[in-house]
Amino acid sequence: MAVTMAPESRLPVRDDGEIVGARRAARALAATLGFSETDLTMIATAVSEIARNMVEYGGGGEMTFAVIDGDGRVPGRRGLRITATDHGPGIPDVERAMQDGYTTGRGLGLGLPGARRLMDEFRVESAVGVGTTVSMTKWVV
C-alpha cells in the first residue's frame, strides 16, 4: 500500500492561466524529489495536457499533487502522484478516448494517450454526467 506523504497541494484549474500554474506547481514539487530534468519536463507536459482536457471538456476542475513514499513493491521508492478531477459530462468510452487521434473537440486527441506515455502509471475513471478523474504517477528512478 502506498503511503501519501506531505507536502500535498491542491489547485483549481479553470482557465489557461491556471493550466500554466498547475504545471509550474507540478514541476516545483517534482524538483524537490530529485527527478531528472527530462522527467521534470515530461511531468509538466503531462500535467499541461490533462489540465487542458479538464478546461476544454470538463468545465474545469482541480488537481492534487502528492508525494508518494513506497509503492508496495519497492520500499522507499518515491514518486509524484497527480490527480485531476472534474465534474464535467464524463467520457462515455474511456477505451476509445485513450487511443491516439480520438477527439470530440478542436484538439489533436493527444491529451490522454500522450500523457499516459509520459508517466509511469496512468488511470482514468469516468462516469457520464458525473465527471472524470485522471490519476497519474511518475517514480523517481
Partner: peptide, 14 residues
C-alpha cells in the same frame, strides 16, 4: 528546443 522538450514532444507525437 531543449532535449527534454524534444523528448516529450516526440512522445506526444508532436
Amino acid at each position: 528546443i531543449q532535449p527534454g522538450v524534444a523528448f516529450a514532444m516526440a512522445q506526444l507525437g508532436l
